[in-house]
Nucleic acid binder design. Structure first.
Length: 614
RNA sequence: GGCUUCAUAGUUCAAUGGAUAGAAUGUAGGUUUCCGGUACCUAAGAUGAAGGUUCGAUUCCUUCUGAGGCUACCA
């Protein structure tokens, strides 16, 4: 017989960040194992419990179907015997119910109050114990030929959030950003600028640096298309025309000149890059993302070329007649892949090899995560194979966090054609909408101007980040501008509102001189709503763990929503400050407090601020 | 063509092989004179098609249909 006293003692010696609900499960599983063994002589080591569906009574469910053959009984009969055994041998179980082959268990209030007391202790520090392991995460990866767009927002929010989650899960995290600041596409906007700008600058044009450069990237494409049209009308094959358009040839020459260090080209490149970086810095500040180290492709591609030389000597790569360098990955089920052009200039994957080496030299992390869209799945498969063939110490532990594209109701975004949702514009719009909504409700009366503006930022960005992060990263998602600025339902502001409301309760209770109690007596009766909330709150640390394993902020987002919803239910059903029974009032106040802290922490993992008043 | 990912209420998203497939939104109705109504409660509404494996399939396998991505000496 497992006594409550024993249970408490056991809970006491377990370190504070032990997952509270897992402990309750563990006790139950042990009892079930004993039951299976003594009733049916079945030795089962890996029993799994499920959460009981909410239309049934109980918290955990044990499925007995898999044991029907071994036990030689009908599912319901096994469940009945097993349930009885557990009830008699484990005092934490209050009752059990059998529905077909499903065995549902309910726990006593003591178990829940005990769990609550552990949750209070655990809420001192939500993050998990240090794992002593270093993880490098690369995200954002902008190109310096155009401003950031909606797709980058998903990337940045995702990368930053995963970094936060990994840190909370106990990893040492290094955030890096690899800027693609060289290559033919950069030359395209440079060339167009040379031809058409008449020397305009961010200052003279009044445009943000990245937007100014992006203007010329679009201009290049228009010119390029016009030239192709002309060539095709002259009777040239369209495919050939694409390769022979004069402006494209000029861009290629420029890339070559760049790699040879041509002074004029380098000067222009530096100037335009400075503009773009200044623009990006503003965007990153608005997004609220940070990096420990920014790499530039222009600094890593030479190292990549060196690795190509090395691999060529070792026979990993081979050279074709035109001097281009390739790798054959047919044994891995892939094709051959170019790693160096015939003119000796490097391609995307060349510099990625160099960057991998450089990152390893700088930080020596064994795990490295690349947050890059799923249209590059093939690229990363190739890259990881190449690194393994080169037999580098950083060949293993690489992971491509491949996320789905963001679709618009109007279709796919194409930056060359200008059909993109600009990141800066979108963020500004979100903040503006937050402002309008909040002012309509008169919620910022009594706020200073700075405080209101800060609040609009928090709400607008909260709505946007939550909208993009609540979806499973792997999946492609639809961005509907109208829905993204909703403040009701499964949205950031709804959860922020719940937090603000809790802060208000806490303020009131302080005014009334009520102190939070950190250990609750076991003899108070709990309602189902309270138990449900304790149950959810007790899961938080294991949610962090799962989110870290799956690199999925959406698990955190969904959890935060569940917490907020469950609290609002309780708030509507039960009184907190007005409750006359002091024990009950204290328990509810504690629940409010922990709920608020949990939301605040979970949202911080998403990069979202939870205001105290809104 | 080859490889690959996806397909769930009107719409946007959930569901380690488990129960009557959950939410949100929209629609229709309702809420204690309430600790902050951006809240809460109720109702109707869905697994692309056909097979197979299984006690049990949204989930695994096959075929088909439809949509995306890759298949660039772009990044």
């Amino acid at each position: 017989m497992i006594q409550i006293g024993y249970l408490c003692c056991l809970l006491g010696i377990i370190k504070s960040n032990y997952f509270i609900m897992l402990l309750v499960q563990k006790q139950l599983i042990e009892a079930l194992q004993n039951g299976l063994s003594s009733l049916f002589q079945i030795q089962a080591n890996d029993l799994v419990l499920q959460e009981t569906k909410k239309e049934f009574e109980g918290s955990y469910t044990f499925v007995v179907f898999p044991f029907t053959k071994q036990a030689g009984l009908a599912p319901a009969a096994i469940a009945e015997k097993l349930g009885q055994f557990v009830l008699e041998n484990y005092s934490g179980v209050k009752k059990f119910q059998v529905v077909q082959g499903f065995l549902n268990f309910s726990f006593t209030d003591e178990v829940w109050l005990n769990a609550l007391n552990k949750i209070i202790q655990g809420s001192q520090k939500f993050s998990l114990d240090k794992k002593g392991e270093k993880v490098l995460i690369e995200y954002s990866s902008p190109n310096t030929n155009k401003p950031l767009h909606l797709g980058h927002l998903r990337n940045n929010f995702l990368g930053f959030s995963v970094a936060q989650i990994l840190e909370a899960a106990g990893y040492e995290v290094i955030k890096t950003n690899l800027v693609n600041d060289r290559g033919i596409h950069i030359c395209k906007s440079m060339l167009a600028y040379q031809l058409m700008s008449q020397g305009e600058t961010p200052e003279t044009s009044g445009l943000k640096g990245d937007h100014l450069v992006g203007k010329y990237y679009v201009a290049f494409d228009q010119l390029y298309k016009a030239e192709i049209d002309v060539l095709v009308k002259q009777g040239l094959d369209p495919e050939k025309a694409k390769k022979e358009a004069p402006i494209l040839l000029k861009a290629q020459d420029m890339l070559l000149a760049w790699e040879q260090g041509d002074q004029v080209v380098m000067d222009l490149w530096k100037t335009m890059n400075t503009w773009v970086f200044a623009g990006f810095e503003k965007s990153y500040a608005q997004m609220g993302v940070r990096f420990d180290k920014i790499y530039r492709e222009s600094n890593t591609y030479l190292l990549g070329k060196k690795l190509v030389d090395e691999g060529l000597k070792e026979g990993v790569f081979y050279q074709k007649e035109d001097q281009s360098v390739w790798i054959n990955l047919e044994d891995e089920g892939l094709d051959e892949k170019l790693v160096l052009r015939k003119d000796g200039t490097s391609v995307y994957i060349t510099q990625d090899m160099g960057t991998a080496q450089l990152k390893f030299e700088d930080f020596g992390a064994k795990k490295s995560i690349y947050v890059v869209g799923n249209e590059q799945d093939y690229h990363f498969e190739v890259l990881f194979h190449i690194l393994k063939k080169l037999n580098k110490p950083y060949s293993y532990g690489n992971f491509h966090l491949s996320y789905g594209m963001v679709d618009l109701p109007s279709g796919k975004m194409k930056s060359r054609e200008g059909t993109v949702v600009d990141a800066d514009d979108l963020m500004a719009e979100m903040v503006q909408t937050a402002k309008e909504r909040t002012m309509e409700l008169g919620k910022t009366d009594g706020f200073t101007e700075d405080a209101s503006n800060e609040l609009y930022q928090q709400l607008g960005m909260g709505a946007l980040k939550y909208f993009l992060l609540k979806v499973d990263p792997k999946k492609r998602m639809m961005f509907n501008p109208e829905e993204s600025i909703d403040f009701q339902g499964n949205t950031g502001p709804f959860i922020q509102y719940t937090h603000a409301r809790i802060c208000s309760i806490t303020r009131k209770s302080k005014e009334l001189g009520i102190e939070l109690v950190d250990t609750h007596a076991y003899n108070t009766e709990l309602s189902v709503t309270e138990i449900d909330l304790i149950y959810i709150l007790g899961q938080y640390k294991s949610i962090i763990e799962s989110a870290a394993e799956a690199f999925s902020p959406s698990l955190i987002a969904m959890y935060a929503y569940d917490v907020a919803k469950q609290f609002n239910k309780l708030y509507n059903e039960l009184s907190i400050l007005k409750e006359e029974d002091e024990n009950k009032r204290n328990i509810r106040l504690t629940l409010a407090d922990i709920t608020g802290k949990t939301i605040q922490h979970a949202f911080s993992l998403l990069g979202i601020v939870s205001p105290n008043k809104m």
